[in-house]
Design a protein around this nucleic acid. Structure first.
Lengths: 227, 227
DNA sequence: TAAAAAAGTTAGCCATGACTAACAAATTAA
DNA sequence: TTAATTTGTTAGTCATGGCTAACTTTTTTA
């Protein structure tokens, strides 16, 4: 039997669902991911999600019991990791070689990650000399599927007085990324938490000699390493 | 009114049909292109083609009368030229930077040409320093849509004794391209037509000190400049 | 020029992947 | 512990873009 080891005959939609589920399960380290949660994340109806999950279960990429939590099989995870690898390599290419800015890379990478060719992505990796991180500071999985998920500490989780370093940001929103650049934050910036306001959870931070007040929502999307 | 000048809200299928029609009409310089011909070229049923043509007519990309020949509007042609530009730029990138061979580039470029981003393709163009030709010798349309269709002379159209230079090849078939490389032909190769056999139209050619006999079908896909 | 062949069209079907509306199960709160 | 709320499921609809089969128009050819 010709074990073609993943000809990857998945539709764009199937890939989107698997990647989204992986991100909720692994990257966000959730205890339980449910149908509606996945639907909301993908901005589709719960009915659509239910439908697709059924399909992915028959293909053995997803496991779940009726009314139970969603989980990925090893095969499902592997597909998701490959998508994340592709996404981040393309982002890196766009940023480093094609003059794309921080906030422009995501949208195009969302399209490019669905291009089917192992050679393409491995050669792109080689061409860029095997980068470790994408422009947002996220680790890029290797061609062997090695991928260390670094537990993420959000800026919002820190207490007053804490000093940290910006290591990565959520790349999902153009407006968010623009704002990050605008106020002068960048990867590796050192940030001091000056004050956490109780009533609205907004945070006063200091970095590069400037002081800004950011919302809780903003701080949820900024990932840091405590110094 | 925000004239977004082509947000390019076309599906992959719509793009495929427009590009195919352009190639039949312009590149092959056909007097008449019909529904079934387009269907055969795209390897879909005549019914599917009929359906899509209707849709493209309502969108003003295609013009035709019932039972009449198919034609592209200026808008339809412009879309096709942009697709050809994208296809050839990606082929060039894969060939020159990612170690893809002559026969490997087409399949992946077929996917990449559908990625929607003006910035992506113009930056890729700049990154490669505005190449004029793709790896198969075809001219690459500019970002302004300038595209000179060079009338193609096929090797099969030459008479005995003619001497010519290989300027481009049809990139549609992997097997064909492999065979071209295998026998030692490359862009700019000088070819002498030694003999045209009447009964099966096969052609005996000489190049780089080797002599080969090729079929009519082969010679139809080799484009030359007479010296 | 009439019959045969080719080309084009239409009707009706299918799969994919969205959707809404209605309903069922599980969880949370009173 | 029952009621309310949230979560999950099902049924049925829609658009896209394929398909086959049957039919019509045009073109070819005998």
């Amino acid at each position: 039997m010709t074990n073609k080891l993943n000809l990857n005959n998945l539709t764009k939609s199937e890939e989107d669902y698997l990647k989204a589920l992986f991100q909720l399960l692994v990257e966000d380290n959730s205890v339980k991911v449910g149908n509606n949660q996945l639907a909301e994340y993908l901005k589709v109806s719960p009915a659509s999600t239910n439908n697709m999950i059924k399909k992915l279960k028959t293909k053995n990429y997803v496991v779940s019991e009726k009314y139970g939590k969603l989980e990925l099989t090893d095969e499902g995870s592997a597909i998701a990791v490959r998508l994340i690898r592709k996404h981040r390599l393309w982002e890196t290419f766009l940023y480093n070689y094609l003059n794309f800015s921080w906030d422009e890379v995501h949208e195009v990478a969302e399209q490019l990650e669905h291009i089917k060719s192992y050679k393409l992505i491995d050669e792109l990796d080689r061409f860029m000399d095997f980068p470790e991180k994408d422009p947002h500071g996220e680790l890029i999985p290797t061609s062997k599927g090695e991928y260390k998920v670094v537990p993420k500490i959000t800026l919002s989780s820190l207490e007053e007085g804490a000093i940290c370093q910006l290591i990565s940001v959520n790349d999902g929103s153009v407006n968010f990324l623009r704002f990050v650049s605008e106020i002068g934050l960048a990867l590796s910036s050192e940030i001091k938490v000056l004050e956490v306001r109780e009533f609205d959870k907004s945070i006063r931070i200091q970095f590069n000699d400037s002081i800004e007040t950011v919302t809780r929502k903003f701080a949820d999307n900024v990932f840091v390493k405590v110094l």
